[in-house]
């Protein structure tokens, strides 16, 4: 399937069904969820705990599968892909920023950033150049040899963002990226995400509890009981 950038949304969910089974009881999360997100959009997803925000993000990241419905990102039908195909898709199309950074403690900042590049056919020199460029982009030039344990939360999150964008994915998924940061660091991270969306054209889907963070997005979706309600942001 060839993507028509002008007419087709970049992310398209149709009639998504998803539930969890606890013992013999089935607990539905989504029963026919629809969602479209345009390329280069910046969408914040808010909602109370248990509303399905993380489940939605996991499905968009291809680490969880819907029970039914269609899930298309770009030209790829994630709902029809096997696990190895989804791994490959993640490696080339998506970056993810976690709430608690999830950096590997035994690797330096630069090595953490370099991880996604190990999956690409690049020479060591090409990888090093890219890593230095993204560390510079997130304001951590010269800090590549530092280990995560010696960095502040804000700095670790910037390493996390650098790792998410180093392979130049079109889609950036953020799971509470400011949830573990103080206001100043959170604002820096949000400014960086806004820059990535505005200047580099990344499509960003950000799950957050923080209304202040959500205001950085172009639009905010409220998820409750498996359904969306929408609100446009001033940003």
């Amino acid at each position: 399937m060839t993507e028509n950038l002008n007419h087709q949304p970049y992310i398209d969910l149709k009639g998504i069904r998803k539930g969890y089974r606890i013992g013999k009881e089935s607990i539905p999360i989504f029963s026919g969820l629809d969602l479209t997100i345009a390329r280069s959009d910046f969408v914040a997803v808010m909602g109370p705990s248990g509303s399905g925000k993380s489940t939605l993000l996991n499905m968009l990241a291809g680490i969880d599968s819907p029970d039914g419905g269609q899930l298309r990102i770009g030209s790829n039908r994630l709902d029809q892909m096997g696990e190895s195909a989804r791994s490959s898709w993640r490696a080339h199309n998506m970056g993810i920023v976690f709430q608690f950074y999830n950096l590997l403690p035994m690797l330096t900042a630069a090595e953490n950033v370099e991880l996604p590049l190990l999956l690409k056919p690049l020479s060591a020199r090409q990888r090093r150049v890219r890593v230095e460029a993204v560390l510079d982009l997130v304001g951590l030039a010269g800090r590549g040899r530092q280990y995560p344990a010696l960095m502040s939360g804000g700095q670790q999150q910037r390493v996390g963002i650098a790792r998410a964008i180093v392979a130049d994915p079109a889609l950036l998924l953020c799971d509470e990226p400011t949830g573990d940061l103080d206001r100043t660091s959170a604002d820096e991270v949000l400014a960086m995400l806004a820059f990535l969306n505005r200047d580099l054209g990344k499509t960003i889907v950000m799950v957050t509890h923080d209304p202040h963070a959500a205001r950085q997005a172009r639009r905010t979706l409220h998820l409750d009981k498996g359904q969306f309600s929408e609100q446009r942001s001033a940003a």
Binding site: S87, A91, H92, L119
Partner: peptide, 8 residues
Amino acid sequence: VLKTLGFS
């Protein structure tokens, strides 16, 4: 985390 980054 590695699998999320695309490690098969």
